[in-house]
Simulated scan of single mutants.
Amino acid sequence: MSIIIREGGPADIPVILGMLDSCVEWLVGQGRTGQWGTKPLSESPRTVESVTRSVNEGSVFIAEVDGVPAATLTLADSPGPTLSHLPPPGEPERYIHWLASDRRVQGHGAGSALLAHAAEVTRRAGISLLRVDCYAGDDGKLVGYYESNGFVRTETYEGTDGWPGQVLARRV
C-alpha cells in the first residue's frame, strides 16, 4: 500500500462530495447523526457551495491509496465566515477545511498523512499555526483523532441549532 498526496482542484469537487457522502453513510450506520445529519451532503446546496468556495479559495490536497482517492482536506488562510465570532489568533495561520476520508477506503492512514502534509506545507510557508474545527459531540472521537495527530484543544463553540464545536491548534 502506498499513499500519494497530490494537489487537487475544481475537477475534484465530485470526488470530495463523494467522500463526504461516504462519511455521512458511515456515521448514520453507527447511529451518530449529530455531526452531519442523515442525508448525503452532496444533496445540500449549502454544503456544495461551501466545498466549492473552499476548493476555489484554498489549497486542496487529495490522498490516494494505491491510486484511489481516499481522503481530502483544504488549507486556507482563515476559518472563514462560519467562525467569524471566534477571536483571531493574532498571527498568520493556516486553517483546515473539509477533512474527510472515504470510509470505503479507510484504515490506511490517509487522513493522518494529509494532516502531516498540511503541517509541513504550513511550516514551509513560514507559518507556525495550523488550526481546525470539528464536531465535538457524541463520544468525542473526532476531537480525540485530531489530538492523536498533534492538535490541542483551544476554543469551544456552539454552532447552529446547538451543534457542539471544538477548535484545535497545532504548532508546526
Rank of each mutant, 00 (worst) to 15 (best):
P81Q: 11
E64Y: 06
P89Y: 05
A100H: 09
H108Q: 04
P79Y: 04
S84Q: 09
I96G: 08
D77Y: 01
L99G: 04
S78L: 00
A110N: 03
Y95A: 12
P79S: 08
F61C: 05
D102P: 06
L99W: 04
G107T: 04
S78K: 02
A71V: 14
T72A: 14
P87N: 11
L99K: 05
D77W: 02
G109V: 08
Q106L: 10
L75K: 05
Q106W: 06
G90L: 08
H117R: 12
P88T: 04
E64K: 07
E93L: 12
P87L: 09
D77C: 04
Y95S: 09
G80I: 04
A119F: 07
F61V: 13
T72H: 07
G109W: 03
V65E: 07
A71E: 02
I96K: 04
T82S: 14
L75Y: 00
E93Y: 01
H108F: 10
A118Q: 03
G80C: 02
S101C: 14
H108C: 10
L73T: 05
R103H: 09
G109N: 06
S78N: 09
I96M: 05
G58M: 00
V65L: 15
A110D: 06
H117P: 11
S101I: 14
S78Y: 01
P69I: 02
H85W: 06
V68H: 10
G107S: 05
A63C: 09
R103E: 15
H108E: 03
P87E: 09
